[in-house]
Amino acid sequence: MLISEGKINSSLEDDSSHTESPGPLPETVLAHLDKSHITVHTYPESHPDDGISTFRADIDVSTCGKISPLKALNYLIHSFDSDIITIDYRVRGFTRDIEGRKHFIDHKINSIQNYISNDTKELYHMIDVNVYQDHIFHTKMLIKDFDLDNYLFGITKKELLPSEKRKIKQKLKKEMYEIFYGKNMPKI
C-alpha cells in the first residue's frame, strides 16, 4: 500500500481483475507513506487483584510536505472513543521558501485544542503544557462523564447494588486520574 500526497503512477494501481484471495491475512500490516509514517503501539494490561483492565494505543503520525497530522486529530479521537487522550505535537526540521529562506514553522499554532472539534471539547477536561519557543505542544484530555455499562462484562449496571456501582465507579475514576496525571494516587 502506498499513500502519497501526489497522484500515484497508474502502473502501481491495483489490478481489479485479480479475484483470488491473497491467502491468510498477515499479523503485521506494513504501508509505505511518501515522506511520512504512521505507527501504532498497543499495550493491554490488567490489574491482578481489582479487575481493572486498560488498553493503551500509542499512535505516531509523522508527516512532511502538505499533509499535516493535525488534520487527522478529530478522526483519530472519534475512532477510538478514549477516556484519556494525550497528544504531543512537535514541529521538527524546516522547510524553505522559493528564495531559499528557512522556515522552522510554517503555520500558526498556540494550542492543539484549536484543532479539536467543539463537540469533542465538550466531552473532555483539557490541559495544555506547551514550549512555544521550541514548537512543542502537549494536550491532555480526560473524559468528563462515562456510562458504567461501557466498562462491565457479562453484567449490566441495573444488576448491581448501589454500593457496588459506587465502588466500581470509584475504581474507574482512580485509574483514569492516575493515568491522566501520570502518578499513583492513594485515594480519590
Rank of each mutant, 00 (worst) to 15 (best):
T120N: 03
G65H: 08
D149R: 06
F180Q: 13
Q133A: 07
K183I: 00
L161M: 00
L123R: 08
K169V: 10
S16M: 14
D128M: 11
R166S: 08
F94I: 02
T42R: 15
Y177Q: 14
R101M: 08
P162G: 00
L73N: 00
D83L: 09
F104H: 06
M176F: 09
Y151M: 01
I112Q: 05
E175R: 14
A57I: 12
K35M: 11
R92F: 09
E5L: 10
E175W: 07
P26N: 04
N110E: 15
H32F: 14
E20P: 03
C64W: 01
K169F: 05
H47P: 08
P48M: 11
E164K: 00
I136W: 07
N118Y: 06
I168E: 01
P162Q: 01
M176K: 06
K7W: 11
K66E: 12
T95L: 00
G51M: 11
K7C: 06
M1Q: 07
Y151C: 02
H125Y: 15
K158I: 07
P22G: 14
M141T: 08
F94C: 03
I109T: 02
D88I: 07
V91D: 02
F94N: 10
S62Q: 13
Y89V: 02
I105H: 01
Y124R: 09
K66S: 13
S11M: 15
T156L: 07
G6S: 10
H41E: 14
E175I: 10
D49V: 14
P69N: 09
K165T: 01
S11D: 15
L70K: 05
H32T: 14
S10R: 14
N118S: 08
S4K: 02
D119Y: 08
I179E: 05
E45V: 12
T63L: 09
I8M: 07
S53K: 13
H107A: 12
